[in-house]
């Protein structure tokens, strides 16, 4: 009954992206999934044009990085002083734009996306396939790289400072606007990686990310938004809980497995408001 692990891998991947973005820009970006989807379509297009896989992979990440940076500088710069809710509405607007554009350019039929890891079944009963394993490994590689980046490089530290406390960061000479732009670029690039890894499992189409993003959020919040490792754990936990609920709760279990999973997460949050592995932030008056 570990079927949930199979889907949990996808959620973990997305949850990690969500956490990294939260670290970099201190926002939950609702357009994140659509941006990742759009990046994946770019990768698909490059592959269609005959680029080798890894070249397309790297190019896509580069394009996404630049794209994310440009979006921050053009769309969000003018309204940086607007209230948070206005930002959220702009996220929703971006969501609509990317979804609609992708459908317009590449239409809505599903497209297979190749996996660099193959589709072989690793364990006999196929709980985890080669691709899933590859995906999880990739997720951890990204996790380690990011950890090192934020911890040991000047830019990484500056970015964290800019996100956590813009005023103080500005005082010590950090170009906060630039850092936020870079944060968006990185967020977009990580989203691209997640999209490329997820697409072989769920097939590529403009609406592929919507639900995954929800699970990603749930996983990230469960694990704690300040903890990348927690996010990965949270993603797997969501997958497993959802599946167990579907299997073991009679009558309504199968129909309501998502609501049940979400309900459990909320119950956890009520007792651990910062997630399982999150740091508690003390509020001062």
């Amino acid at each position: 009954m570990l079927a949930g692990i199979a889907t949990g891998g996808i959620y973990a991947c997305m949850a990690l992206a969500v956490v990294m973005i939260y670290q970099a820009i201190h926002h939950l970006n609702f357009a994140q999934g659509e941006m990742a989807m759009f990046s994946t379509f770019i990768a698909w297009q490059l592959l269609q044009w005959g680029f080798p896989y890894w070249l397309a992979f790297v190019l896509t990440i580069g394009i996404s990085f630049v794209g994310g940076f440009i979006i921050e500088r053009t769309v969000f710069k003018p309204i940086e002083n607007a209230p948070v809710l206005s930002h959220i509405v702009v996220f929703i607007a971006l969501f609509a734009i990317f979804n609609s554009l992708a459908g317009f350019i590449w239409d809505f039929t599903i497209k297979p996306f190749p996996s660099p890891f193959g589709n072989a079944s690793l364990f006999g009963d196929g709980l985890i396939g080669a691709h899933q394993a590859g995906m999880i490994v990739m997720t951890f590689v990204v996790l380690v790289l990011l950890f090192a980046f934020f911890r040991y490089t000047r830019v990484g530290l500056a970015m964290r400072a800019a996100a956590a406390n813009p005023e103080s960061a500005r005082l010590v000479g950090i170009r906060v606007g630039m850092m936020t732009g870079l944060g968006w670029g990185m967020a977009s690039a990580i989203g691209a990686v997640a999209g490329i890894l997820i697409a072989p499992v769920v097939f590529l189409e403009p609406n592929m990310m919507l639900s995954i993003l929800l699970y990603g959020f749930a996983g990230a919040v469960l694990g704690g938004l300040t903890s990348p490792g927690g996010a990965v754990f949270g993603g797997f936990a969501v997958g497993v809980v959802e599946n167990l609920a579907g299997t073991y709760i009679p009558v309504v279990g199968a129909e309501l497995k998502l609501p049940i999973a979400l309900f459990l997460i909320i119950a956890v949050l009520v007792f651990k408001p910062n997630g399982l592995f999150g740091r508690t932030i003390v509020q001062r008056v």
Binding site: A3, G126, I198, S211, I212, Y215, L258
Partner: peptide, 17 residues
């Protein structure tokens, strides 16, 4: 009988079940 919702990302776990 295994249901899925349109909002589900995949049906992988349903197939395993």
């Amino acid at each position: 009988e295994q249901p899925y919702e349109v909002a589900d990302p995949t049906v992988d776990s349903q197939i395993i079940n």
